[in-house]
């Protein structure tokens, strides 16, 4: 098994990831101030910053969707139930015995099955919920002035509650995500990979050899 530094996260991907991280953190921080949880910027500035960050976030999402579709990277996120149990077993037992990761990371398959499921859920459920409820929140009721009766919603309550739920889910995601990045080959290897793009992986060019290697295949399924 030969290992070498492989360029796994492309520059746009890294930019997107960190931009998204900053924006989600900032949106959550200003958002919970608007929600009344605490006071930091002052209500008016919190709203103003939240709205600016919203447009930036939406811009980022548009670019990212485009990138995912044109590069085919979206395929990385298609969920699979294969190896889910192995991955769970790893986090619950294997990790404490210094067992190897049950799935290997390659350029073509960067995500483990649990990551696939989680990120897929974020991408098709939580973030869309957050963005649509957020847009309705911003433009709530005021469309009626422009005569768009179809989205003349009578109460903000449900919009606001859905928006809060999405925000809480994202906070929980960030908290666990921040912990799980320490569970790579070493504590910092995942973080370093997302910063530099390079991670020490088994050489992808020797894929064919690996499949014929009986040692590796068992390792994958144990």
């Amino acid at each position: 098994m030969s290992k070498r530094q492989i360029y796994i996260y492309k520059s746009f991907e890294r930019f997107w990831h960190w931009m998204q991280a900053i924006l989600i953190f900032f949106l959550a921080f200003t958002g919970f101030e608007i929600h009344g949880t605490y006071s930091f910027f002052g209500y008016r500035d919190a709203v103003r910053y939240h709205n600016v960050a919203t447009y930036m976030f939406i811009g980022l999402i548009i670019f990212t969707i485009f990138w995912h579709l044109t590069t085919g990277e979206y395929k990385q996120y298609l969920p699979t139930f294969k190896n889910i149990k192995a991955q769970l077993d790893y986090y619950i037992f294997g990790i404490f015995r210094n067992a190897p990761h049950p799935t290997k990371k390659t350029v073509l398959s960067k995500l483990n099955p649990l990551q696939k499921l989680t990120y897929f859920g974020l991408k098709i459920l939580v973030i869309p919920l957050s963005v649509t409820s957020g847009l309705l929140y911003m433009f709530y009721r005021y469309p009626s002035r422009q005569g768009i009766e179809a989205i003349n919603i009578q109460s903000l309550e449900f919009i606001a509650i859905f928006h809060t739920v999405a925000a809480i889910l994202l906070v929980i995601f960030i908290v666990t995500h921040l912990y799980l990045i320490t569970t790579g080959e070493t504590v910092t290897s995942n973080l370093r990979a997302m910063l530099t793009g390079y991670e020490e992986l088994e050489d992808a060019h020797k894929d064919e050899e690996k499949i014929s290697d009986p040692k590796l295949t068992t390792q994958t399924f144990e």
């Binding site: 608007i34 929600h35 009344g36 903000l156 309550e157």
Partner: peptide, 9 residues
């Protein structure tokens, strides 16, 4: 009515 900053579930 629901008012942001004041109301919550």
């Amino acid at each position: 009515f629901y008012m942001p900053g004041r109301d919550y579930s």
